[in-house]
């Protein structure tokens, strides 16, 4: 049931959520935030579930054998295995969402997209290219930063 719900959240495009939320919450960044949040919940929920399903059960068995409670098993055997993957996927999603947020403005859900669609509609092409350069630069900087962070997290996992 939860799976079907997550599937629904990630199949309906963010922009459709944004369109509906703009009607419900009014113009502004709030519907954009919520639309991205719902879509990402769907996508990350699936990835996280897969990560948790793929953990090595041996540490859990070991901890249980040493007399740990359920909570301690999760904390000491499962979480250390999945945390780096969670962080890595979360950052990847952030990267994707930066791109997604750049178009939220097309439907009135805030952000730079608002300016962009106005400039394109009015044929101010030099403004369009300036905005595109801005977006690309932002996306690249965030890509590079998150890539660094992700390697850091995954590297930690490889070491331990």
């Amino acid at each position: 049931m939860v799976r079907r719900l997550l599937e629904f959240c990630r199949t309906v495009p963010e922009l459709v959520f944004a369109l509906i939320f703009v009607v419900a919450f009014g113009l502004g960044p709030l519907p954009g935030v919520l639309a991205l949040a719902i879509h990402s919940t769907g996508a990350l929920g699936k990835l996280f579930a897969e990560v948790v399903e793929n953990v090595d059960m041996k540490p859990a068995e070991g901890v249980t054998a040493a007399g740990a409670t359920w909570w301690q098993t999760v904390h000491l055997a499962i979480v250390p295995q999945v945390l780096s993957n969670f962080a890595s996927y979360g950052l990847l999603r952030f990267e994707i969402n930066v791109r997604g947020a750049s178009v939220m403005g097309f439907v009135g859900a805030g952000g730079i997209g608002q300016e962009l669609i106005e400039c394109i509609r009015k044929f101010y092409y030099s403004d369009v290219s300036a905005l595109l350069v801005l977006i690309i630069a932002t996306v690249m900087i965030i890509d590079l930063a998150t890539e660094r962070l992700r390697y850091h997290f995954i590297g930690q996992e490889a070491r331990s």
Binding site: F21, V23, F25, P29, L30, L34
Partner: peptide
């Protein structure tokens, strides 16, 4: 910065329910 207020969220969800 994004001016997200609790009240607006509650109101919006009410509206969403109607939809």
């Amino acid at each position: 910065r994004l001016d997200v207020s609790f009240w607006r969220i509650v109101k919006g969800f009410g509206e969403l329910g109607t939809f």
